[in-house]
């Protein structure tokens, strides 16, 4: 797969604070790429840099294998941080400006307004919109002219649960149409439900990046109990593929490599003459993974 966006060694500082420390990753075509991290981890800074509103201190990035940046940005629908529109203009007039800058026809405005459910309010001024409506308009603007790539920074900010579900559906739908979507969020649920790839940032460091099923399943936990806990722990320390063993209450938690299955653990224990009274594969939720990584 060709890469839509390639980031190499990007760094950025605000005074003495290093907001990004040499971040590199590639966004493959057609994926839903989640940029994940707690508040202040550098997500928006990173997106700001690749959208040319912030200057990187070092590093490079390229869109569509080196397309000139201005041209590339016209192919990308973006929502960065907040919905930014002219308060005194209607939704319709605001979209006309977006269309003019992106060199797209303004005839597409009706379609995108219907898609985000604002068509009835097209002639209302932006300043009369609720936060949720503003956010929808921003998403509508991003969709204008059939963008190949969407960059969405916290797209569900300010939306009610129904609105959040709608946006999630919209993202799934667009993904099916082959549109590449880069989405930054601190809401894990949001990412977990729609993303195919993730990059996790913490205080400007890239902790990991890759396809969700590789990155996030790699550290499943197997829980075991047996009559002789000390013996069990000792035995398991010699088993290959187990990275860490932790005793929690009366249970041993095993952090395993990807290819270790509960069957193998069971077989190993039987060979060592230990009978397990409890064996459980605990798929790590993104949330606990995230907390572990970022704390």
């Amino acid at each position: 797969m060709a890469s839509i966006l390639s980031i190499k060694n990007i760094s950025k500082s605000y005074g003495p604070i290093q907001a990004l420390k040499g971040v590199s990753f590639d966004v493959p075509e057609g994926c839903v790429f989640g940029v994940l991290g707690p508040n202040g981890s550098g997500k928006t800074t990173l997106l700001g840099i690749v959208l040319d509103v912030l200057l990187a201190k070092g590093g490079t990035f390229s869109w569509f294998d080196g397309m000139p940046h201005d041209e590339a940005r016209r192919q990308i629908g973006s929502l960065l941080e907040t919905p930014n529109f002219y308060h005194y203009l209607s939704a319709y007039d605001n979209l006309e400006i977006t269309a003019a800058i992106r060199r797209k026809g303004k005839d597409d405005r009706d379609r995108v307004l219907k898609q985000v459910g604002l068509f009835e309010r097209k002639d209302s001024k932006f300043q009369s919109f609720s936060l949720g409506m503003k956010q929808r308009l921003a998403i509508g603007a991003a969709l204008l002219g059939g963008a190949k790539v969407l960059v969405l920074d916290e797209p569900t900010n300010g939306l009610d649960p129904a609105g959040i579900a709608e946006i999630r559906e919209l993202i799934r739908e667009l993904h099916k149409q082959g549109i590449t979507i880069i989405i930054a969020s601190h809401l894990l649920d949001e990412i977990e439900k729609v993303c195919t790839h993730v990059a996790i940032l913490k205080k400007g460091d890239l902790l990991l990046s890759g396809p969700v099923d590789e990155v996030l399943v790699s550290e499943d936990q197997v829980e075991v109990r047996a009559a002789d806990m000390a013996g069990l722990q000792q035995a398991l320390q010699t088993m290959k593929g187990i990275k860490r063993i932790k005793l929690v209450d009366t249970t041993l938690q095993l952090a395993c490599e990807t290819d270790v299955t509960p069957v193998q653990v069971n077989e190993f224990c039987i060979r060592k003459g230990i009978v397990l009274s409890h064996l459980l594969l605990r798929k790590k939720s993104l949330e606990s993974k995230f907390m572990e990584l970022t704390n």
Binding site: L80, T98, I101
Partner: peptide, 21 residues
């Protein structure tokens, strides 16, 4: 200053202008 207040200076660049334009 409206452009800064509404942050449309950013949006204009994000949508395909650049600072100099």
């Amino acid at each position: 200053t409206n452009e800064y207040g509404y942050r449309t200076n950013r949006q204009n660049v994000i949508d395909g202008l650049n600072k100099m334009k």
